[in-house]
Every structure is written in structure tokens, then in C-alpha cells.
């Protein structure tokens, strides 16, 4: 029994010692370094790709931001402010003809400002439509808000049926036609010729 114990102990120690020495294949260190190098290269490529995507996303976000700011500014442009400030539209450019429809258009009361067309006054403005198709004023700075008299006139035009407006227009025309302006008459100049006595007085 004692002998068996010793034998087993010795056997176990020897077996454990023999078990400890696994030998790797030659060139293990070179293969490890090669693998590390390959992995590092892949990582470097991945980093580059990652940086590229980050830059692309940042650029895209910047472009989107600038576009949004630009669109927002356009929707709050001076043209919109002008129309909001009293239904006024800019006066036509010097070469432009005034609106042909005399029924719908008011004559200008102050320099550079015309009243809004009747149709535009009747129909409420649509902000979305204005934002999509903004029209820039032909006059800068934009005209001042309408005066109380102009507003009253617009109100009158709004409230008055078009037939009544049309009926009142020829009467005004007739009144203006009955008033005739006579042509100016200028008396001819009468300059008397110089006499001998008058020339002596001048020489003295």
C-alpha cells in the first residue's frame, strides 16, 4: 500500500511535468506580428472610412441647416412684410404700365404707393402660396403703411358694389369734361422805336 502510494505520487508528478511542454510550430512570433499588422491596417482603413462618413454627415447636416435658414428667411422677406403692413403693393416701375382694369384698381394717392387691387383685398392672402412664389418689390425701401384716408377709401371700395362704382365713374368724367380750360392769350409786346432826344439824354 505504501509502495503503491509512492508510485502513484511519483507517477503523477512525472505525468504533470510531461504535460507542461506544448511546443508551438516554428515562426510563431512572426505570424503573431503579421496578424497584428494586418489587423492594424484594417483598423486604420476602418478609421478612415469612419472619418469620411462623419465628415459627409456633418457636411450634409450643414447644407440642410443652411437651406432651412435660407427658406425661413425668404418666407419672412420684406415683400411679405410690405403686404402685411396695410395691403399695400409696390408702385410699378417707371417703365411699367399701370393695371388695365380700372374698376379693380385704385388711382394712386401718394407718391410711390398704390392701393391693393380689389380682388386681392377681397380674397385673403395665403401665406403658403406667398412663401412659395414670393415677389420682390420694385421699389426700395418699401412704401410706408397706408394712411387712414387711404384705408377708408379701400373700405369704401370694398363695401361698394362694382356697379355703383362704375356708375359713379362716368359722372365724374362728365363733370371733368364740362370744365373747359381756355387757352392762354398773351398780348403782343409793343416796343416803341428810339427817338433823337432820348439818345442825347443818354450821352449827357
Amino acid at each position: 500500500m505504501e509502495n503503491n502510494n509512492k508510485f502513484v505520487e511519483k507517477l503523477l508528478d512525472s505525468a504533470l511535468l510531461h504535460r507542461t511542454k506544448p511546443e508551438p510550430a516554428p515562426g510563431l512570433e512572426a505570424r503573431i506580428l503579421e496578424r497584428v499588422r494586418a489587423d492594424a491596417g484594417e483598423q486604420s482603413d476602418r478609421k478612415k472610412l469612419w472619418k469620411f462618413w462623419v465628415a459627409a454627415v456633418a457636411a450634409g447636416a450643414a447644407v440642410a441647416m443652411i437651406t432651412m435658414i435660407y427658406v425661413a428667411n425668404r418666407s419672412h422677406s420684406p415683400a411679405a412684410n410690405t403686404t402685411q403692413a396695410g395691403n399695400a403693393v409696390p408702385a410699378p416701375a417707371p417703365g411699367e404700365k399701370p393695371a388695365a382694369n380700372t374698376e379693380a384698381t385704385l388711382q394712386p394717392r401718394s407718391k410711390g404707393v398704390v392701393a391693393a387691387p380689389m380682388q386681392a383685398a377681397r380674397h385673403e392672402r395665403k401665406p403658403t402660396h406667398r412663401a412659395e412664389t414670393p415677389h420682390w418689390p420694385s421699389q426700395f425701401p418699401t412704401p410706408a403703411p397706408l394712411s387712414p384716408e387711404e384705408k377708408a377709401l379701400i373700405q369704401y371700395v370694398r363695401d361698394t358694389p362694382p356697379q355703383d362704382l362704375a356708375a359713379s365713374y362716368p359722372q365724374q368724367e362728365a363733370e371733368s369734361e364740362s370744365f373747359e380750360i381756355k387757352p392762354l392769350e398773351i398780348a403782343p409786346l409793343d416796343i416803341p422805336p428810339l427817338s433823337a432826344a432820348s439818345t442825347q439824354q443818354v450821352s449827357q
Partner: peptide
């Protein structure tokens, strides 16, 4: 490290793979 990996895996190929992965 190879010996440690081998003691667990008992396979030369796997032990080398584990060693390489460790250094990576």
C-alpha cells in the same frame, strides 16, 4: 501565452489562434 491557450484548448491550431488574438 501559447502554453496557457494550449492547456485550455488542447489543440495547437486553436492555441495559436488564441495567442494571436491576445496580441491583437
Amino acid at each position: 501565452l501559447y502554453a496557457i491557450a494550449y492547456s485550455v484548448l488542447r489543440n495547437h491550431h486553436d492555441a495559436e489562434e488564441a495567442t494571436q488574438e491576445t496580441f491583437v
